[in-house]
Design a binder for these strands. Structure first.
Length: 414
DNA sequence: TCTGGGGTCCTAGGACCC
DNA sequence: TCTGGGGTCCTAGGACCC
């Protein structure tokens, strides 16, 4: 029998815990990070039904004494990194999932540091003592089960799943504990009379696949029997980079979407240039007032990372969406995403393919000139701050719901 | 009273090639 | 008159995760 060596470590109510650490008068109180929208809530606030993404107004209704705090974004990054670094003291096999969460495989570390349970206890004690933060850890033979165990361990706990008792542990839990079961799948399973993982495991795999689709069905059957083949991966790179902006309700006019698209394109293209990872496919998403969303994509013959080139393509795609939906006069969100990112390469030919591409050689020259201009701008902003320079259009007053500093916390490494 | 932002993966249909 | 089969790429939409 294998032993349980996979840890899943997850900082509890991370942003809210950091705020309570920085200002101890907030300890024990219902607090929310954010304002217009709740970005994170303390456990005391969660008890009132408050969760991330909830409109601030609604949160105030649910909990009149809720305290809103502005985010200390640099501290989130610093403390999140520090907590992961504690894990890395005990094994190099660490897979970071987000700012506040990571898997670690401690197989082969027993001689040096003790059993997986002992390592986890040490990590929890050190994160508490050195950083002042609560962190929950689950330990199991597979990533999936370790992740479930850490959720069960919360808040501020440790759960070890004995390899001999895996299915007893797993099958008693409701299906929504499975990775990949959200509201829709949960409802579909409920209609079929399945509400626990044990009930799911007993269904014929073919029936589950008919219900949920081939891949999702096969995956859930495997997970219900704790067949999770994934290893801890220390280096995962992003496959896409995007940005979006919720607009409330705005007219579907060029005056509205041109500056927004330029700002989004600028945010994305800067990241692509920074990591030398231009992308070939540009996808745009337009959400209308009724929350219905439409996407349009275009794949280019060569990858791009110039702000202007990306913005021009996004503008053409959005114009196409609005042409196809002439009845829609109000938009509530715009998004751009770039995928098919190339591996880092020294030389890129930036071709500004417009929808009507006119001539390769002049186009390539124009693209290179744009890339050079962008890189000069990047250098200025790196030295003097983001406000120092930028495209005039991106500078036009946009009040955004979520500060850029917070957005960057969610970015994956490219 | 409307519902943030950054990602991943899957499906289904069509185009195109061999 | 009828019309294979597999593989790959692309687009649009949807579910899900943190």
């Amino acid at each position: 029998m294998d032993t349980a060596t996979i840890l899943h470590a997850d900082l509890d109510a991370f942003y809210a815990s950091v705020e309570q650490l920085l200002d101890p008068s907030l300890l024990g109180k219902a607090i929310a990070v954010g304002g217009g929208v709740v970005l994170a809530a303390s456990y005391e606030a969660k008890a009132f039904g408050i969760y991330g993404g909830m409109p601030g107004r609604r949160a105030r209704e649910l909990c009149p004494h809720l305290i809103f705090v502005g985010g200390h974004f640099e501290d989130y990054r610093r403390l999140g990194d520090a907590a992961i670094d504690v894990l890395r003291c005990y094994t190099p096999s660490v897979e970071r999932i987000s700012i506040d969460e990571a898997f670690a495989d401690v197989a082969g570390c027993e001689r040096l540091f003790g059993s997986p349970r002992a390592i986890a206890e040490t990590v929890r004690a050190r994160v508490r003592a050195e950083l002042g933060l609560p962190i929950s850890i689950g330990i199991a033979r597979t990533k999936h089960l370790a992740k479930i165990a850490s959720q069960v361990a919360k808040p501020d706990g440790l759960v070890v799943v004995d390899p001999k008792a895996e299915l007893a542990f797993l099958h008693a839990l409701p299906v929504e504990h499975l990775w990949g079961v959200g509201p829709v799948t949960k409802a579909r399973l409920a209609e079929a009379g399945v509400s626990t993982i044990g009930e799911l495991a007993l269904r014929a795999p073919a029936a589950v696949q008919r219900l949920l689709g081939r891949a999702a069905g096969a995956k859930l059957t495997a997970l219900a029997w704790n067949r999770d083949p994934r290893d801890v991966e220390t280096r995962r790179r992003a496959h896409s980079a995007g940005a979006q902006s919720a607009l409330g309700r705005r007219a579907a006019s060029e005056a509205v979407f041109l500056p927004v698209l330029h700002h989004l394109a600028d945010r994305i293209a800067r990241r692509l240039r920074e990591k030398e990872r231009p992308g070939r496919t540009v996808t745009v998403r337009v959400r209308f007032a009724d929350m219905r969303a439409v996407t349009r994509a275009r794949t280019l013959p060569a990858p791009i990372s110039a702000t202007t080139a990306l913005a021009e393509i996004a503008v053409e795609l959005v114009r196409g969406v609005l042409r196809d939906h002439p009845v829609e006069r109000t938009i509530s969100l715009l998004a751009i995403s770039v995928s098919q990112l190339s591996e880092a390469c020294a030389l890129q030919l930036e071709l500004p393919f417009g929808l009507a591409d006119d001539g390769l050689l002049p186009g390539a020259r124009k693209g290179l000139a744009r890339l050079k201009a962008d890189k000069a701008l990047d250098a200025i902003r790196a030295r003097f701050g983001d406000g120092a320079a930028g495209y005039a259009r991106t500078a036009t007053g946009l009040t955004r719901a979520v500060p850029d500093a917070f957005r960057s916390l969610a970015e994956k490494e490219l």
